[in-house]
Design a protein around this nucleic acid. Structure first.
Lengths: 214, 214, 214, 214
DNA sequence: TTTTAACCGAGACGGTACGTCGCGTCTTATA
DNA sequence: TATAAGACGCGACGTACCGTCTCGGTTAAAA
């Protein structure tokens, strides 16, 4: 999956449209340069972290003129985001395990999430991305549309299955349910407000399911 | 309230201690300069936002040499944090309303939080602070100790009162309970993952209390 | 008058001839583009000065691709030179006044030159052209052949007339004579080495003629 | 000799004075950086020529930040000019040969000038300087004050000696006389308007002296 | 008449340099 | 010895143009 035309256009939409400046013509865009830039961005953000990453370094590593970056992306954040997006692209649909018992499956999922958060290779880029999202509504929208939505949809599908099995209230707001489960976990990690343990994940599932059952 | 010696020392801990450089002697510190710096930082972060704020600008606005800032603070984040801290300082203890009915009081509190989040004067600095916390464990610790802890303690005191009244399970983990209530709200706001409405606050309280009751 | 094939060829002579690249075929050249480029160059050099003039700006103003300029001209200087040349083209021969008295005629001519130099519309482009000539022997040759030679020839014709009238030494080197008269004037203007007044022009003629008479 | 305070101030005078911008304080200026910059400028202008010389290259060669150049000089031209000035500085007064016979001495001087012009090490920088002077009145003034004036004064002193000896008209304008002698020579070289030979120098002296004698 | 090769407009590309901002360090003088 | 002031080396910014290089699309000569 790549960012399609519509998202490109929306990104451009935030840049200056007035004045004499013609928007670049995407049909002439060099796919080779685009890929080299995203690869360089990915590598450099791993090596240096987002804060110390510079457009100049990306351009140099990619063997590309700076202008080629500025032409197609509006900010360092957009480049890095697209770089991650290309990586995290799950291709097609995500399907989560469904053992028939929601509690078991959720505890598994959330323990897995806890483990992911402890992976240092994962930590740096995702922290950087979230820090950017906080101050950049455009990036926030992109993130939710392109990265979060597919995963959330898979999780909601599992919850729907539980509803059909009578394990959840039939009128439950699934978005709200996901937030109840995941927001505490995510916040502990992101804002370092407390220790993240498998037991914590279990407690969360226990308490939340108590509230969500029919 | 001001940041006391111990927190200053911890800030210094991150700076070079070796070499020839002696640590500055706090007894000779100019209180006038310190206040001018914090005031300038507060003003500038409001005018420009945290990202566009520079040490040079703070020094210029405060009528202070740059070295005076570098001498006493370890980063832009620390200066701004201390500036906010001085502002938000509640003086003494915070006491939350206790009507006897937990649900009523929580709904009131959370609707108030929603309203606070919608205040643009509040939005900028708090977003900036959170973005910094994501990438700066030291700042995260400072934040939780100095800013979050007093408020959280007041909330937990209200929950304890509800436990005594039999409205909450007696063995409930109060930190976890607070997270269940507030994390979804905070995440929606911070990461812009959904609309923040009073009704949303009510739903959160309803579902959560269902899980927390004895 | 336009720059003829021979001068074009000489311009091309400085560009790469080897390799795969065939020389462009002048018979296919777009006269419309050529004129638009020269016009744009003339306008822009007046508006911005030569130093701030860019090939990109010429191409944009002329509604022409950059390659079309690079195809037919070897440098910014050549384009601008040809643009001026087309302007200054006197059509046919220049004839200077001949009252019979050389002193009178020369003083008139040189006062006229002084007046020309004071014209701001004249000043910018000619300064630019001369600055380029200093560092570009090819352009210097073009300048002397195409722009200076016709005017100098007319002046020398007037001097020859004076020789026939016995007002000048019969074996006088006319090029040298012209230089004696004009170089001091030109230098004062070009290098700003002193004030240019009509009286100065008169003094030049007086002293020079004293040396040139039989 | 170095450029003294007054000329520095005059250079600064042409830069923006309004607004908030404080002018830099010359007493804090690093003499070491200044010298490194001038040396680098001199070397680079010889290696690359003035046109291909960049501020970045000067800064890099001098081991200096670009800002340090921009802080103290207004343009590439000013830097290079001061670099040459430091070189050409004759220390104290120049005295020209005085054999008692003006014609002999002038022919010697002008043949020497012709020879100088043929020296390639001399050619590049001086051409560059003159090209800049054409478009930069400030630089022109500096040039005449600091570089040309001392030499011209020495020449005029020789002419005054000739006046006392009765070899020149007593009321002769010496500036004008110098221009008559040197401008034709200089123009042939600068604008490449003709060949520069020792014989040409002699002819110039012959004809000019004819006009200048009492 | 139909190729077909060229020039054409447009403009993306890898680069170089620009002039500016801000960093964190260092130096000077003032109190 | 802490301070205001600010120069310094440095790195990066975002922009302007450079000269080269595709792209279609015309257009005029060759087949």
């Amino acid at each position: 999956m790549t960012i399609d035309d519509s998202s490109d256009r929306s990104a451009e939409g935030a840049r200056a449209e007035g004045g004499s400046g013609g928007r670049p013509n995407p049909s002439r865009r060099s796919e080779q340069s685009r890929r080299a830039i995203l690869t360089a961005a990915r590598e450099l953000v791993s090596e240096l972290g987002f804060a110390k990453l510079s457009i100049e370094a990306i351009a140099a590593r990619a063997g590309v003129g700076k202008q080629t970056i500025y032409r197609w992306w509006g900010s360092k954040g957009e480049v890095v985001f697209e770089a991650f997006l290309a990586l995290s692209d799950p291709g097609e649909g995500i399907v989560l395990p469904d053992s028939g018992d929601l509690e078991t499956d959720l505890k598994y999922l959330m323990r897995e999430t806890v483990a992911e958060f402890a992976d240092p290779a994962f930590e740096g880029p995702i922290r950087a991305l979230n820090a950017e999202i906080i101050n950049d509504p455009k990036l926030a929208r992109l993130y939710h549309e392109k990265m979060a939505a597919p995963v959330d949809e898979a999780k909601k599908e599992r919850l729907r299955s539980a509803q059909r099995a009578g394990q959840l209230a039939p009128d439950l707001d699934l978005d709200l349910a996901l937030e109840l489960l995941y927001a505490p976990l995510y916040q502990r990690w992101l804002l370092r407000s407390g220790p993240l343990t498998p037991e914590y994940a279990d407690s969360l599932v226990d308490l939340t399911l108590k509230g969500l059952r029919p």
